[in-house]
C-alpha cells in the first residue's frame, strides 16, 4: 500500500498535506498523531471513501481501494451497528458486501463469534449488546471476509484492558497469517507493543516514518553516571550533546541522535574516569511522539 504526496483540502483547510507513505506487505503499521492530525482522512483516502484533492493512492497494486474492496477490511473510528439486526446477521451482511456468498458468510460469522467468546450472542440484536461486545462484533465484521489489508481506525478506544488484549491478539494473528494491518491510534503503548513501523503525522504532514527502533532514536538517549573524577576528558566527545550536573557527583548526558551509550562507557574507561554508577536509558515511542508533535499539538490546542 502506497501513498504518494497525497493532499486533501476542505475549502482552505488542509486536512492532509503532501503525505507519502509506503506500507510493506505483512506488517503492522501504525498511523500516529494528535487529535485532528489527519489520520482518519488519510485512512478514508486509502479506502477510497474520500477522494484526495491531489496525489496518488495505490492499494494492493491497484489505483483505488474500491477495485480491490473484497480484499480490504475497515473498522471506522466511530463505532456503530444496525441496532435491529442480530450480531451474526450484521457480520454476515458486511461479509456478503465484500463478495462472500450468503451461506459462507453466515457460517463464517457464527464461527468467528464462537471463537471470540460471543457464540451465545449470535442471535441477539445488536442493540442488546454491551458497548464492548458491540465493538468486538464490529471488529469481527471488518475481518470476516479474510481481507489482505485491514484498516483499523482507533480500534482500542472504548475497550477495557482485557478486551484491548483480545484485540491485540486478533491483530497479531492477522499478521501471523501474512495479512497487512494499518491501524491508527493515539495510545502509544498499543503502537509500541504491536507495530513494526509507524508514521507520525501532525497538521496533515508526516513528521516521522520508520521502524519503532528508528522512532525511539529520534529522542536522544540519556546516560547517567556518578563519579568523583573530573569530566574534562569527556568534553570533546562528538556524541555528547548536553551535559547537566545533578549534584553530588551525578551527571546526565544527552547523546546525539543515533549515538551508542556503550561508546560513552568506553570513553570513560579509556580516559580513566572512574564510575560508581552508569545507566543508559532508551527513549520510548511516547517520548518520540511528544518531542515530534508536542509543539505543534500544543499550538493547535491554543488556536
Amino acid at each position: 500500500m502506497e501513498l504518494e504526496s497525497v493532499s486533501k483540502r476542505y475549502g482552505d483547510f488542509r486536512a492532509v498535506d503532501g503525505l507519502s507513505l509506503s506500507v510493506p506487505q505483512g506488517c503492522i503499521y501504525g498511523v500516529l498523531g494528535p487529535n485532528g492530525a489527519g489520520k482518519t482522512t488519510t485512512l478514508r483516502m486509502i479506502l477510497g471513501v474520500v477522494e484526495p484533492t491531489s496525489g496518488r493512492v495505490s492499494v494492493l497494486g491497484h489505483g483505488s481501494a474500491m477495485s480491490v474492496r473484497e480484499r480490504v477490511g475497515y473498522l471506522p473510528e466511530e463505532k456503530g451497528l444496525y441496532r435491529k439486526m442480530k450480531a451474526s446477521a450484521v457480520i454476515a451482511y458486511f461479509a456478503t458486501l465484500k463478495g462472500m456468498s450468503r451461506r459462507q458468510a453466515d457460517l463464517r460469522a457464527r464461527e468467528l463469534l464462537d471463537r471470540h467468546g460471543l457464540g451465545l450472542f449470535a442471535d441477539v440484536k445488536t442493540e442488546a449488546l454491551s458497548k464492548g461486545m458491540g465493538q468486538k462484533v464490529q471488529v469481527l465484521a471488518s475481518i470476516a471476509h479474510d481481507p489482505d489489508l485491514v484498516i483499523l481506525d482507533e480500534p482500542f478506544s472504548g475497550l477495557d484492558p482485557v478486551n484491548q488484549g483480545v484485540l491485540e491478539e486478533i491483530v497479531r494473528d492477522l499478521k501471523e497469517r501474512g495479512r497487512t494491518v494499518l491501524l491508527s491510534t493515539h495510545v502509544m503503548a498499543h503502537a509500541e507493543r504491536l507495530c513494526d513501523r509507524v508514521v507520525i503525522i501532525s497538521g496533515g504532514r508526516s513528521l516521522f516514518d520508520g521502524t519503532l527502533a528508528e522512532a525511539r532514536r529520534v529522542v536522544p538517549a540519556k546516560v547517567r553516571i556518578r563519579t568523583r573524577d573530573s569530566l574534562e576528558p569527556l568534553q570533546d566527545l562528538p556524541m555528547l550533546r548536553e551535559l547537566r550536573s545533578l549534584g553530588d557527583g551525578r551527571w546526565e548526558f544527552e547523546l546525539e541522535e543515533g549515538a551508542d551509550p556503550q561508546a560513552v562507557l568506553e570513553a570513560c574507561f579509556t580516559n580513566q574516569v572512574r564510575l560508581s554508577h552508569f545507566s543508559a536509558s532508551e527513549a520510548t515511542l511516547h517520548d518520540a511522539f511528544v518531542r515530534l508533535v508536542g509543539p505543534a499539538a500544543r499550538e493547535a490546542s491554543y488556536r
Binding site: V49, M66, Y74, P76, E77, E78, L97, K98
Partner: peptide, 16 residues
C-alpha cells in the same frame, strides 16, 4: 440511522 451510527463509512468502503 447509518449516518448517525457511522455504518455509512464501512458501507462506503465496500460499495459505491
Amino acid at each position: 440511522e447509518e449516518k448517525s451510527n457511522r455504518i455509512i463509512e464501512v458501507l462506503l468502503s465496500s460499495v459505491t
